[in-house]
């Protein structure tokens, strides 16, 4: 039955209108959470404001629970849902570079766009810098070693693979473990905010 796009067709005007509507929802909640402000985002890494972790993991758990439930009821066909392909080493190195970019610049691309929408000048610079970084990536792709590294896959942990498949357990079990870890993370986050709250505040 779902995903609906199997019936609507990819790349149709309807598909694009839906994309636009979903984007509005995405941008709305990012902004409402305070993610248009780089200062607030960066405080995550000094344990003073853990909203990044709270919002992100609440969202992951909400969507994950919905996916596991809908697919186990047979309503949603998971084989029609896009699963990010795994490329272990490019994913690790790319992730570390992104982390460095996050603490240097204060934004990730999605939050920077929301910052742009609300007039934050640093967010405009972040997006402009991001464009330059992406331009340079494409140029560096001409270096054979980089193109090879980008395409490098690792035996046994590559392509369309999920944690339940990799661990050989049912999705519900992994989902439950993620839920438990998230709740533990929320408890730790609440504690950290009290512990590391700036004295002057």
């Amino acid at each position: 039955m779902f995903p609906l796009v199997d019936h609507l067709g990819f790349g149709t005007p309807t598909d694009y209108v839906i994309a636009f509507a979903l984007g509005i929802g995405f941008g709305f909640f990012l902004e409402r959470a305070g993610f248009g402000d780089a200062n607030k985002l960066a405080m995550q890494f000094y344990f003073r404001d853990m909203a990044v972790l709270k919002v992100m993991f609440t969202a992951i758990v909400t969507a994950m629970t919905g996916l596991v439930a809908l697919s186990s009821f047979g309503v949603l066909e998971m084989s029609s849902v896009y699963i990010n392909p795994t490329y272990l080493w490019p994913g690790i190195v790319g992730g570390l570079i992104m982390g460095a970019g996050f603490i240097v610049g204060g934004y990730c691309p999605g939050t920077a766009l929301v910052g742009v929408a609300t007039g934050k000048v640093d967010a405009i610079l972040s997006v402009a810098g991001g464009m330059l970084g992406m331009f340079l990536f494409a140029e560096s792709f001409q270096i054979p070693a980089i193109a090879r590294f980008y395409a490098m896959d690792t035996e046994g942990i590559t392509g369309r693979i999920t944690l339940p498949e990799w661990l050989g357990v049912r999705p519900g079990i992994v989902a439950f473990a993620v839920l438990v870890i998230a709740v533990a993370g929320f408890v730790a986050a609440e504690w950290a905010e009290k512990r590391f709250k700036p004295l002057e505040a």
Binding site: G95, I97, G101, S126, G129, G130, G133, M134
Partner: peptide, 19 residues
């Protein structure tokens, strides 16, 4: 902000996506 955005942009292409 610009330098950080640049790093994030490069890393996001290498990792095939961002946050």
């Amino acid at each position: 902000a610009a330098v950080g955005g640049g790093l994030f942009g490069y890393g996001a292409r290498l990792a095939r996506g961002c946050t």
